[in-house]
C-alpha cells in the first residue's frame, strides 16, 4: 500500500480546456485525434504518482533570464527590453499550495524572436538573451522569474496572424495526472482576443485566467514591473472507502 493508492484527482473539465480539434488554429486539424479519449475510471499508481525534483541541481541563475545567457559584460551584457518579474503561486483546485514542484518557462526576446534553430523571424536575436527559465516552488507554492517582456510576433496561420506577447509555462504538479503546459498573456494586450491559439479556449473566463496581472505593489522602483500569474493544478482528494461493497 502506498500513499498514492487512496488518492485521486478532480477530473479534468474537458470543456474548459481547449478541444483537440480547433480549426481556427490550423495545425490542430491534422494533429487532433478523431476517437474519444478512453477514460480511466480507476487511475493507478502509474497516473497518481509523478517525478519530484528536489534533487535536480539547479544553477544560480536558472530562474533569472537577465543573467543566465550573457555574452556581453556589465550593464551592456543585459538583454534589451522591459525588465519584468513574473511571479505567482501554484495551488491546487482546493487552494492548497503545491510545494517544491518544477515550474519551467520559455519565451521570445523583446523583439519577438526565439533563440531556436527553426525561428527565422526578421527580428534579431539578442546576444544576451536565451529565453529559458526553471525553478521549484517554495513551501507555500510561490515561484518567480526575472526576465524581459517578450515581443509579439507574426506566424503563418491566417494571412496576418500575430501571437500576443506570451510566456510558455510548464508545471509538473504532484503527479503525471496533474501535468500541465500553458501560456501566460499580458493584461491589456490588444492581440489577445485576435489570436487563433487563444481562441481555442471556448470561455472568455478561461482566457482571463491565463492573463498575467500587473502588480505595482511588487514592482521595484527604477528597476522592474511585476506580473502575477497564479497556476491551478487538479485538486487532490483522498478516497475514504476502499471497499466498494
Amino acid at each position: 500500500m502506498q500513499d498514492s493508492d487512496n488518492k485521486r484527482f478532480v477530473p479534468r473539465d474537458r470543456n474548459w480546456h481547449p478541444p483537440a480539434y480547433a480549426p481556427g488554429y490550423k495545425t490542430s486539424v491534422p494533429r487532433s485525434p478523431n476517437q474519444a479519449l478512453v477514460s480511466l475510471q480507476h487511475p493507478s499508481r502509474s497516473e497518481l504518482t509523478g517525478p519530484r525534483f528536489e534533487a535536480l541541481r539547479l544553477g544560480p541563475h536558472d530562474n533569472d533570464l537577465l543573467m543566465n545567457y550573457r555574452e556581453g559584460q556589465g550593464q551592456d551584457g543585459l538583454p534589451i527590453g522591459e525588465r519584468i518579474v513574473m511571479f505567482g503561486r501554484v495551488v491546487d483546485q482546493f487552494g492548497k499550495p503545491v510545494p517544491h514542484t518544477l515550474v519551467e518557462m520559455w519565451q521570445a526576446n523583446a523583439g519577438g524572436r526565439y533563440r531556436h534553430k527553426k525561428d527565422g523571424y526578421l527580428a534579431p536575436l539578442d546576444p544576451n538573451f536565451g529565453g529559458v527559465g526553471r525553478c521549484l516552488t517554495d513551501a507555500q507554492g510561490w515561484y518567480h522569474f526575472r526576465t524581459v517582456r517578450p515581443g509579439p510576433y507574426p506566424w503563418p496561420n491566417d494571412p496576418n496572424s500575430w501571437r500576443p506577447a506570451h510566456i510558455h509555462v510548464s508545471v509538473m504538479g504532484p503527479a503525471i495526472a496533474t501535468r500541465l503546459i500553458t501560456q501566460m498573456y499580458f493584461e491589456g494586450d490588444p492581440l489577445i482576443p485576435r489570436c487563433p491559439i487563444v481562441q481555442t479556449l471556448g470561455d472568455p473566463e478561461a482566457v482571463d485566467t491565463l492573463t498575467g496581472r500587473l502588480d505595482m505593489a511588487r514592482s521595484r522602483p527604477m528597476d522592474y514591473l511585476a506580473y502575477r500569474f497564479d497556476i491551478v493544478t487538479r485538486g487532490a482528494l483522498q478516497t475514504y472507502f476502499e471497499n466498494q461493497g
Binding site: V10, W16, W106, H168, I181, Q183, V232
Partner: peptide, 26 residues
C-alpha cells in the same frame, strides 16, 4: 469553492527552448 484548473495551451513549435535545450541549439 473549487478553483478551476489552469487551462492548457499548446506547447508550440519552440517547446525545445524550455524543455529540450539541445534540440533548440541552446
Amino acid at each position: 469553492l473549487l478553483y478551476r484548473e489552469t487551462p492548457s495551451q499548446t506547447a508550440g513549435p519552440y517547446v525545445h527552448i524550455g524543455l529540450a535545450l539541445d534540440v533548440a541549439g541552446l
